[in-house]
Design a protein around this nucleic acid. Structure first.
Lengths: 166, 166
DNA sequence: GAGCAAAGTTAGACGAGTCTAATTAGATGA
DNA sequence: TCATCTAATTAGACTCGTCTAACTTTGCTC
């Protein structure tokens, strides 16, 4: 029933550690606290718990490191995050701040299959360009968002017949 | 920063009460507990809290009713739920159970603007039919999910020029 | 090497949301 | 009208994730 092995909060910590690790030599409690907008004791408690689950390692007063398992979870979460951000920003055309905020929240609640499909959809929409212009889908969808005018049926496109056999 | 006035849990209770109310004369604690997979004391506690916020009303040992405010919240949540379900099911082609489960989770974390845009997207995709066949977008996207074959540019569609002026 | 500031940790509390066990109210049939 | 069953409630406990306040360690500076 539940597909997420780890809680919203745990995933958030792992993701934050992962992202800080990409840009810094060492990941410190303070950095994580700052990145997540919580206090250091909260980070310490979270690290202790994650450590017990074999997802992170830290020697006392030392820097924080993801284990292989922790890294995998973090990357999964981040991938979902990216997919959602792209969907919200590129496809829906939302402001970066809104797209980011929503992606941060929603990333924890997508089943793996839904994540994969969404990712495919974003990929698909991107791969549908027309000359130098934006993808037909996006161009027409944006128009629709702006004007409320439903697009005419896109009939007569020669590619429809060509694709029939696939 | 936070756009949800009410917690995940509160929204869930309101939505459940709303949905039970659609099909039953009276909404009882037991029904809500059953629908949500929690025990009755949990429902009682939730109702007390929601009541304090003016979202539901209940006389002791009586049936539960949404106030106008509560009804509005419930309908908002349910609308997001429906949009997500349609996206996951119709557009992404996920199994009903997965679509439902994910919609239930994600519905609580969409900003209003994102909800509106997603709804527009689903609407847009639906309104793009070609003859008796499924919408071009869906038809081609499904093909892509199935085969991994990226679609050729859909150039030459006469509607492109026709829409230019909008 | 001593002193000090910053970072990390520990202890203890709190709120949200849940549970079990025990109690109370309401409805129903003999 | 009273016995009984079911629904609702209360009491009390637990987990999770957070906080503040107090303490300890580390590392830098003189």
């Amino acid at each position: 029933m539940v597909y997420n092995k780890y809680s919203h909060s745990e995933e958030d910590y792992l993701e934050a550690i992962y992202l800080i690790g990409l840009e810094n030599e060492a990941v410190r409690v303070k950095d994580v606290a700052q990145a997540m907008g919580v206090t250091m004791p909260s980070v310490v408690a979270a690290i202790k718990s994650l450590s017990g689950k074999g997802l992170v390692e830290q020697e006392q007063y030392g820097s924080i490191e993801l284990t292989n398992a922790g890294n995998k979870v973090a990357q999964d979460v981040y991938k979902r995050h990216q997919t959602l951000y792209d969907l919200f920003s590129e496809v829906l055309g939302l402001e970066p701040e809104v797209a980011e905020r929503d992606a941060c929240q929603v990333e924890h609640y997508l089943s793996p299959e839904t994540g994969r499909r969404l990712s495919k959809m974003v990929e698909y929409i991107r791969s549908c360009p027309i000359g130098d212009k934006q993808a037909i889908f996006l161009e027409r969808f944006r128009q629709y968002v702006k004007t409320g005018q439903k697009p005419e049926p896109c009939c007569g496109c020669p590619m429809n017949e060509a694709q029939e056999g696939l």
